[in-house]
Design a binder for these strands. Structure first.
Length: 299
DNA sequence: AGTTGTGTTGAAGA
DNA sequence: ATCTTCAACACAAC
């Protein structure tokens, strides 16, 4: 997620949206496709930021494009199309826009299956495109005044981002205190408490901390709380350094997978041996989602 | 071939 | 209120 933000800041800030195309209007919230298209035209991209898993692209005229990628959304920055025919924006890509640009010999990640479910395209002044691939069509796009985006209930409800300075050990303690009856594995995933930790990272964080996901928040000692807090920082920072986890379908803005999946210690490793102690990794369900842990290393 | 599971989360049901 | 289940959707893997 942070990888996408950094990439977008490097690549598209300063560029201008000249047109927009979509074949899935349902993703565009509280606006018709035509209004959205009209309003995003000729807006310059000022800055890209995020809170947890929520992406904000600040535009000129105090507008903000708010995007949530959900499970399978990808934002892909594609180079200028070279041999294009005259473009008709009401019927854009006749087939999947694949095999564009990129030097010969280099792997073209845009050919990957998961990068080909393009449902929205932002056409940029430089001739490049910001293309939005989304297999499962869960992702959402909202365009409004920056001020109004900030006031959206789902944004207001967000807790502190796990990596911002404001999220201190003390704040973490307060959060655990308020959720004492809940399993710590559940609390880590609650975006309204701490934003930014998803299903992969909660398992990895708990393994790093040596704490079982089922443990009640109230049972976490001061020493364990410190360990857990430090594990959140450590795991997330390492994942960012490795450009994210592509165990399933995450991709960066060049369509390339991350590298953190090679460093996963427990996630989706059920039935395999723990890398630390050799015992078999267990999987359990917590709130409809799988959690993975080592029954020996985690207590 | 049907079932299950998936960088998620919001709404409905109990 | 708060927790659990389901639904949005498509596809791969078991």
């Amino acid at each position: 997620m942070q990888t996408i933000i950094s990439d977008l800041n490097q690549k598209i800030v300063g560029d201008t949206v000249v047109d927009f195309w979509s074949d899935y209007q349902k993703a565009i919230k509280s606006k018709t496709l035509e209004n959205f298209r009209r309003e995003i035209k000729n807006k310059r991209i000022i800055n890209v930021r995020r809170i947890g898993k929520n992406i904000f692209i600040d535009l000129s005229e105090n507008k903000t494009l708010y995007i949530h990628l959900k499970m399978t959304g990808h934002l892909l920055v594609k180079p200028q199309i070279t041999n294009h025919k005259s473009q008709n924006f009401s019927h854009p890509p006749t087939s999947s826009p694949i095999g564009r640009g990129r030097g010969e010999g280099a792997k073209n990640y845009f050919d990957d299956k998961v990068n080909q479910y393009i449902h929205h395209i932002f056409y940029l002044k430089t001739g490049r495109t910001l293309e939005f691939s989304d297999v499962r069509k869960f992702a959402k796009i909202v365009l409004d005044d920056t001020r109004k985006i900030k006031e959206l209930k789902e944004i207001k409800a967000l807790g502190m981002d796990a990596l911002e300075k404001k999220f201190t050990l003390e704040k973490f303690g307060e959060i655990l205190e308020k959720r004492k009856d809940a399993p710590v594995g559940t609390v880590l995933m609650e975006q309204e408490k701490i934003s930014g930790i998803g299903n992969i990272y909660r398992s990895e964080i708990l393994f790093e901390a040596g704490i079982l996901p089922q443990r009640k928040a109230s049972s976490i000692s001061v020493k364990e709380r410190i360990k857990l807090y430090n594990s959140i920082q450590k795991v997330l920072k390492k994942a960012i350094k490795l450009r994210g986890t592509s165990d399933s379908d995450y991709r960066d803005t060049a369509g390339a997978p991350g590298n953190f999946q090679k460093a996963l210690k427990v996630y989706r490793r059920n039935g395999a041996k723990c890398k630390k102690c050799g015992i078999i990794i267990t999987r359990v369900k917590m709130g409809q989602r799988s959690v993975f842990y080592c029954p020996r290393c985690q207590k």
